[in-house]
C-alpha cells in the first residue's frame, strides 16, 4: 500500500477494533444491569414480605415470627450497586436502585423495632448517615469503623443512608432523628450521635447483650446497606 492509503486503512481497522471492544463491553454491561434489575425485583418481593410480616405480627406469637432478615441476595445487591455505581455508566438506574434499597432498609429497621418491642428481644440498631463526597472525610473513616463493627458484632444491625440521595424517606429519617448538617451521624438505638466515632467509642455504647460476640449466636443481619458504607468513593 502506497502513500496515505495505508494510514487510512489502519485507522479504519483500529476504529473497528475499538467498536468491537465497545460492543462487547456494552453487551456485558447490559447483562450486569439486567442482573441488578433481577435483584431489584427480588428486593420488591422482600419489601412486600416485610410488610406482610408487619401485619402478621399482630396475630402471631413471637416464636412464629421468622427472622426479618432480608434475603442474602439483598446483600449481594448492595455490593453490586456499589460496584455498578463506580464502574457502569447508567447513573439514573443506579440512583433508582439506591432509593429503593434505602426504602427497604427503613422498612426492615421498622420491622426490627416492632419485633424488638413485641417480643422483648433487645436488638441493637445503628442508623448511619453519610455523604458521598470529598467534603466528608470522616465519613470514609466512619465507614471503616462500621465495617469492622459489623464483622465483630454481626448481631448489630447497621443501616447506611446516603444523604446525597434524593429520597423523601431518608429526609424523613433525618428530620425524625434531628440529624445535623455536619456528617457523619449515627443513631444508636434511637439516640443521635454527631461526628466521627471510633470503634472503641461505639463498643462502649453497645448494650452488654452484644458483648462477647464470638460466643453469641448471631441472627442473620442485613449487610450494610448501602452500598458504600465508607461514605465516599
Amino acid at each position: 500500500m502506497k502513500g496515505f492509503k495505508k494510514y487510512f486503512i489502519v485507522l479504519l481497522i483500529t476504529i473497528a477494533l475499538f467498536a468491537v471492544a465497545w460492543y462487547i463491553s456494552t453487551y456485558l454491561n447490559n447483562k450486569k444491569i439486567t442482573d441488578i434489575r433481577n435483584a431489584q425485583n427480588k428486593v420488591n418481593v422482600d419489601i412486600m414480605s416485610s410488610e406482610t410480616q408487619f401485619y402478621l405480627l399482630q396475630s402471631l406469637s413471637c416464636q412464629d415470627i421468622g427472622n426479618t432478615t432480608l434475603a442474602s441476595e439483598i446483600s449481594d445487591l448492595a455490593d453490586k450497586i456499589s460496584y455498578a455505581e463506580q464502574n457502569l455508566n447508567d447513573p439514573n438506574q443506579i440512583q433508582l436502585l439506591k432509593q429503593q434499597y434505602s426504602v427497604l432498609e427503613v422498612k426492615d429497621f421498622l420491622l426490627t423495632k416492632q419485633i424488638s418491642i413485641r417480643c422483648k428481644q433487645p436488638i441493637t440498631t445503628i442508623l448511619y448517615f453519610y455523604k458521598n463526597s470529598n467534603s466528608c472525610a470522616d465519613c470514609t473513616r466512619q465507614g471503616y469503623v462500621l465495617d469492622a463493627l459489623r464483622q465483630a458484632y454481626p448481631q448489630v444491625r447497621i443501616y447506611s443512608f446516603d444523604t446525597g440521595l434524593d429520597s423523601s424517606t431518608i429526609r424523613a429519617l433525618q428530620t425524625i432523628y434531628k440529624i445535623p448538617a455536619s456528617l457523619p451521624s449515627l443513631v444508636i438505638n434511637g439516640k443521635t450521635q454527631s461526628g466521627f466515632m471510633s470503634l472503641d467509642d461505639l463498643e462502649k455504647l453497645l448494650p452488654s447483650s452484644v458483648t462477647n460476640p464470638l460466643k453469641a449466636t448471631p441472627p442473620p443481619t442485613i449487610k450494610s446497606p448501602l452500598i458504600n458504607t465508607q461514605g465516599s468513593k
Binding site: F18, A21, W22, S25, K32, D76, N87, Y144, D147, A148
Partner: peptide, 28 residues
Amino acid sequence: TVGFNIHTHINFNWFYINTQTIFFVTIL
C-alpha cells in the same frame, strides 16, 4: 482508624470482572 483488618471479602462473581471498553482494548 480500625487497625489491621483480616476480613477481606473476595468475590469471584463474574459481575465484578472489569467489562469496560478500555479493559478489552488494553488486552488487545
